[in-house]
Amino acid sequence: MIRRRFPWLSYLVVVTGAVLTVVPFLDMVMTSFKGPGESGTLPYRFLPEAFDLSNYRAAFDQLDLPVLFRNSVIATALITGSVLLTSSLAGYALAKLRFPGRDFIFRLVLSTMMFPPFLFFIPHFLILVHWPLAGGNDLFGRGGAGLTVSIAALAMPFLVNGFGIFLMRQFMVSIPDEVLEAARIDGAGEFAVWWRIVVPQTKPVLVTLGLLTFVDAWNEYIWALLVSTANPDVMTLPVGIQLLQDYVDPTRTMPIVMAGLVLSILPVLILFLLLQKYYIRGVMLSGLK
């Protein structure tokens, strides 16, 4: 109907919206190149006088970026790997195996999604700090930093994801039982059935779940902030960059922060642009919840 005419009004709306979405990112990139005294001064100027890389160098000087990067990568990899593995295993059991208590466990998994994350920051933190016999703690969880001494603390509360299990289960239900039964008759054990038949068949969903998990884990801030406060050695990129604000000379603070931000969001951005088909499907699927 309206398609017959050129939809100039629609273009106007969509382009305006897109500009509003992209401009803050451009401002971030531009600011990251601005020299001392060039940012935060009046009148505002969008473009830097020269594209100078000194802010990027300063970000490296102020922060141990390789360590932050390593911590972020390890935490993200642990979380993504664990979520994929546990979701796929549990999803298979719930979708294709028959055992007493299955419906109850499935309801339990669904109900875990009802608890909002903020409810857990305090108890998770206290449990990890007071973990018995870890990080210098005695049997009653006193005296040391508990499990926060390890990078794994960054990942621990996110290693299993109720939504992930639910998602995998929903997709595995549609795998025909005959295929699995045939493999079992050929003598394959359940583990082999899962690994050789179910995992390959659910690869696209695994990519989607992996990508959603990866982006969330990479961007996670509050929990990483808490763990890094207890043990600065495990600081992640977002936490470190936020700290930059307090460190450096105020006339250069923002350009250096922006330089750090550009570096920290690049990996996710590239991954998103390459695999956005899967990511976008994931967001649609999260509507299944």
Partner: peptide
Amino acid sequence: TLYFLPIVTTVVAVGNVWKYM
């Protein structure tokens, strides 16, 4: 894709960029 950029960006970036703006 364009409208999606903010969603894959960490809150630290979004917050700081806007704070600065």
